[in-house]
Computed example of a mutant assay.
Amino acid sequence: MAAARPDAKVVKQAIQWMLRLRESGHDPALQQQCTQWRSARHEHEQAWQRVTHLQQDLDLRAIPGAGLALQTLETSQQRLHRRQALKLLGGVVIAGSATWLANDLDVVSAWASDYATGKGERRTLALPDGSLMQLNTHSAVDLAFSGQQRLVRLKHGELMITCHSQHSVLVQTRDALLEGFEGRFVAYQDGDCTRVSVSHGKVAIHRPGNGQQQWIESGQNWRLDAQGAHRLAHVDMDAMAWAEGLIVTQDMRLRDFLRQVSRYRHGYLSCSDDIADLRLSGVFRLEDPEQLLHLLPQTLPVRLRQRTRWWVRVESMT
């Protein structure tokens, strides 16, 4: 069963403890106080585990008011003591984070999901019927398996299903209900659409209000959106390669490539408009996205401009 939605007050307290411990530099007395708070109630420990497990996904720039605090923290011209800057950041985050986390954002979705992955994390799970599910970076799903149905609800992100049994597996996405038969397929909720790729076997597309069933055959790639289901004649990236820890591209735009890489790392990553249409073809390993970025100037006439480890922009050499 899915975990209960975390209470905003307890989440706020857990974030506050996290920031205080980070600021204190591992103060033993403060660590003991935090331990006492965690052990006082079960929901305290539950909130703490979720916050610490997913803190890498808490992009503080998305919290209202935190952008200015982070800018102050990172700008050396301000010459604020680290403790002062952290206190400023902590105040902003505590004031806005509980409400922010209470909204239907991906981080909260992960907390209230049966299974989830963080940024850069991939996970493989055996489903109750013997099928195999792989979750890509920053993804969350709920399971509803019974004698009557085998349903996976993709809440956000990307998954790969390998159907081993003679029974089909249903995957509910934002845009359609997919029914996979013996074989392997990938479903990725990308912005305003769902992308589906079938390695082998076949997948049926069931859409609300559409009595006509469509089929995705082996080797095909489709886009599902509010306008309907459309087969893609050309794709510039191997949709299955991430399961092997790879990005495999064929004549892919640099801007689109960086968008994919940003799914596996924290912070800002983009490129200037004048080089956005440069093309890449190759095999890139995902285990170290930062090293991957530093390979770009070896293959393209570009350079990296890096303000902090969290802010990288790719620009022209000229």
Rank of each mutant, 00 (worst) to 15 (best):
V261W: 03
G267M: 04
H53N: 11
T137V: 03
I94D: 13
E315R: 04
S218E: 13
D129G: 08
Q71V: 01
R255H: 12
L105A: 10
T137L: 01
P128W: 00
E182V: 02
V312K: 06
E45P: 00
W100L: 03
A116L: 02
R255D: 15
W100Y: 15
L224C: 14
R153V: 03
A140R: 01
H26Y: 09
H294R: 15
Q227R: 09
Q71T: 12
L60A: 13
W311L: 08
I205A: 10
W111A: 08
G183I: 08
A187L: 03
V198R: 08
Q36D: 13
C34N: 10
M160Y: 02
R83P: 03
R305F: 05
V10G: 01
T249A: 09
A243E: 08
E43F: 01
A140F: 03
P208L: 11
D114Q: 01
N103Y: 12
Q172F: 02
E287D: 14
G211F: 04
G191R: 08
I15Y: 09
L132I: 12
R38N: 06
H81E: 14
G191P: 00
K9P: 01
E23T: 12
V248Q: 05
S218K: 15
E290F: 01
P28G: 06
K119M: 11
G96Q: 14
D288E: 09
R259V: 06
W37R: 06
L143V: 03
G118A: 12
T117A: 09
D27V: 02
R83K: 14
I275Y: 01
A176N: 06
L254Q: 07
S39V: 04
D288C: 07
E287Y: 04
R305M: 02
L70E: 05
D129P: 05
T75D: 15
I216G: 02
A14Q: 07
Q77P: 02
E217M: 11
L86M: 15
M317K: 13
Q220S: 14
L88M: 13
L300N: 10
W17A: 10
L224I: 15
R174Q: 10
N221R: 10
V312W: 06
R22D: 15
R122L: 00
A116D: 05
D238L: 00
